[in-house]
Structures are given as C-alpha cells and as structure tokens.
Design a protein around this nucleic acid. Structure first.
Lengths: 234, 234
DNA sequence: CGATCGTTTGACAAGGGTCAAAATGCGTGG
DNA sequence: CCACGCATTTTGACCCTTGTCAAACGATCG
C-alpha cells in the first residue's frame, strides 16, 4: 500500500502540473521519494504547535488537518491526499497551525529544499495557493450551502483533487472515509450525512459501492452547486 | 480619513511585529505609504480572476474578500483591516481567488518588492501564514460553533487584529460593519445575528453604542468559545 | 461466533431561517 | 431646525433543516 509504482514519481507528476519543473527538480523529487516514513492509521503525524521543518509530502494514504474543541467536537479543516505537501507557508520557524492526523496508513517523504526564484520554489508557492483556495471553498461550502449541496460540492472537489494525481477519473473515485469524518469536515452530523447521501443516490446523482463513488450525471451535480474547478495562476 | 498620522508608519508597525525588519525595510515601507490610492465604499478593489501583481496593502478603512453564489447569496471569507496585505501567496502570475470589496472608504499603497531571504520577505510569508490561520479559524467557527458562539469568537478575533495595529484595545474597538455583513461572514442571517447580539448584551458579555463595542468580561467571553490567540511562529 | 466499527432508521426536539412589518437612526435638502 | 427618504436594526409568528437519542442492522476480524 505504501509502495509507489515505477514510472514518473508522484510528486514530480503533481508538482510539474503546477509549475514547469526542470530535470534537476524532477530528479531531486524522485530522489526524495526513495526514503519514506510510514504512519499508522489514526496516528498524529504533526501536533499543533510543533515545528513544521523539515517539510514532508504525502505519498500514499489519506490524512487531514483537524482541530478539537474543548467540548470534544472536532472540525476537519482539509484532507491531504497523495501528492499533497504537508503544512502550508514554509517560513522560518513556522509552527503547525493544526494537528495532522493520518486517516489511513500513510507514507511520507522529505521535501527537497527549493532555492528562491527557482521553478521548484514556484511550485511550492502555487501549492500553498491551492491549499488556500481549498480552504476558501470550504468556508463558502459550510457557510452558505445546505447539507445536500455541501456533500455534492465536496465530492466534486475531492474527485478533482484525486484526478490530479491519477487516482481517479472525473467520474469515479475511491473514498476511504467514514461518514463521521465527512460530517466533521462539513459541519454536520454523521446521521445527517447519511440521510443526504441516500438522497443523492435516490436522485441519481451519486452511486457508491464498496467505497467507490461514481457520478452518473456530473454536469447536473455541478450545476446544483455552481461548481468551479480551482485555478491559482493565469 | 485616508490620512495616516505622523510617526512610525502603519505598515512598519504591523510588519515588524511579525518579523524583525531592518532600517532599509522600514524606510521602504514608509516610502511606499506616501503614494496612496483611495477606493470608494462598496467599490471592487480587485475582481476575482484578475492579476494580483503589483501587490497592495490596506492603510485605512475596511475591506473584505467575498464570493457571490449563483442564487445571489454572499459569503464573506475574511475582512481586511488597516495594515493587512491584499491577496495571499505572491507567486508569479498569481490571480485573485476572490473579489476584494471596499466595505468603507479605503486607502491602499503599493507594497515594496522583497528580495528572497530578507527579513521583509519573511514578514510577508508570515503575514500569509496569519491569513491562513484566520481562514482556518473561520472554518472551525462556522463548522462547529453555534450562532451565539460564532459571534463571540469573531468579535474577539477581530478585536485582537485591530489591537495589533493600534486601532483598538483588548477590551474595546470600533466596528463599522452592518449586521448583514456579519451575517454573510458567519453563515447566518442578519435577523439571527441581531437576536444573538442582543443576547450577548443581555448576558453582559458585550456592550455597544455608536459602533463601539466593549467586552465587560473578556475572560468569560473567551472561555465561552475556548478562544486562543493566533500564533504562526515559535 | 462474539466484538467492534460503521451504516441505517425512526421519533422527536431545537436552532436558525423566512417573511413582513415596525422602529430607529442618519444624512440630505429645504 | 425640521422633514423627508433611505438604510439598518428590531420584533413577532411560523416553518424547515438539521441535531439528538436510541436502537437495529450489517460487515469485518480475531
């Protein structure tokens, strides 16, 4: 599960979609992926307030940024899927703004240092911009969409993110998350997430079996929530 | 209203709290503030998708990042107060992720370019980290707090942000926003914001008159929402 | 084959939304 | 200084979405 397949490495693939990398960058990334560190499911990969250096990237499995409130409630801020960088904004002495939790078993590698003004640095900066975008989408989602739309919108975004790294097609993807995780992401209860997903299925906007989800009519789903894919540069 | 007073400039003050700037940086910032551009209240300072370069900073007045949904609903993602930088993540060819709206009359200035690895660049990076933090707090707020707590939490955060630039004390600040703006920020309706603010006053957690708000018992308010001030570096 | 975790169902409660109107405040012009 | 018009705040009645609680059901694993 933590083994990358041969061929262009995951990080190279992901980051060169974001900015045009040169051979040295690609080699450095490919090199970095050789030495992985694995985290067990449910382990805390980074604790809130810890140092964020050295930086790592996610190679396999799912993780999330989460925050726990005093009353025990949890808010998941975002998920990390393979190819994502762990922790935004690498400034000196940066500290983790949240706990990073491994949702499944997870493999990570160290991220090569990027010299300023190189293409790699640019790729990192754009990745941060992507993360920022996803957070803003998250605010809009839970601030202004109802439960039905929240789920639809989130599923579309997640499918697109997975597609970016070749783990999905625009119409189908595997989702190894419980409805409770979804609920804690979308500001709902798991009971209500369950009800709304049933409704999406009843409305023929979603099919699922064995953790694999399919959009029978993606266009209709997109119109339902006015879905727009993320763009961070011209 | 758009005139800065004499003494250390707003940007110098704000950014040197974030990272230790040297004389050249301070001079450059002070210099930049000389040439301001004013926007009328309710004008769009940046439109979604436009280029984000050259970068600007807010010197006076309030602005916000907002998104409008197809059905006309609005979500405000964050507010900009004097001293804030406009637009996060300055990578090359960055485009604006949202519309920036002047809430009141507003004055801006151009932001001096920072050479990589300088203290100024570090200050910009940390400012971006702050913005990221505020967005995450916003997600937690609307995802997991009820209306009463959302307002309390947001007021505390906003007071602290204003205090950072000398526009408030920890116990008192001026808020030139309508309850509708607040509602569009917190994922509520203006009617409900109104009801909850009355309740905060009834509970002696908030006083207001003429747009100036006071916390009669800040500690109790903070405990109510488990409020934690933002930190981005060690 | 129990134990455990996740999904599903149902009855009921409550927080917050909707709609409409009244009250209040405030800038403008007479 | 007053009167008007507009924006904003406030109020009330009613409804709907979502949460709560509890139990049943289903899968997976030692």
């Amino acid at each position: 599960m933590t083994q990358g397949q041969a061929g262009p490495s995951l990080l190279s693939m992901r980051l060169s979609q974001v900015a045009p990398l040169d051979g040295a960058d690609l080699a450095a990334l490919q090199d970095a992926e050789r030495e992985t560190r694995v985290f067990r499911a449910r382990s805390e990969m980074v604790r809130e307030g810890e140092s964020l250096v050295p930086r790592r990237a996610l190679l396999a499995g799912w993780a999330c940024h989460q925050r726990i409130l005093i009353d025990g409630q949890r808010q998941i801020l975002s998920f990390l899927v393979p190819g994502d960088l762990i922790g935004p904004h690498p400034h000196t002495q940066a500290i983790a703004p949240t706990t990073v939790l491994a949702v499944s078993e997870v493999a990570t590698c160290l991220l090569p240092q990027a010299k300023p003004t190189t293409a790699l640095a640019e790729a990192y900066a754009r990745s941060a911009a992507f993360e920022h975008h996803y957070l803003m989408a998250q605010v809009t989602r839970i601030g202004r969409l109802d439960a039905y739309q929240r789920i639809a919108d989130w599923l579309l975004e997640t499918c697109d993110r997975l597609t970016l790294v070749g783990l999905a097609t625009p119409l189908q993807f595997a989702l190894p998350l419980t409805q409770e995780l979804l609920a804690d992401t979308l500001g709902l209860t798991s009971v209500h997430v369950n009800r709304m997903m049933q409704m999406l299925r009843r409305d023929d906007l979603l099919k699922s079996s064995g953790g694999v989800f399919t959009f029978p009519d993606r266009l209709r789903l997109e119109r339902l929530v006015d879905y727009k894919p993320v763009r961070v540069s011209s």
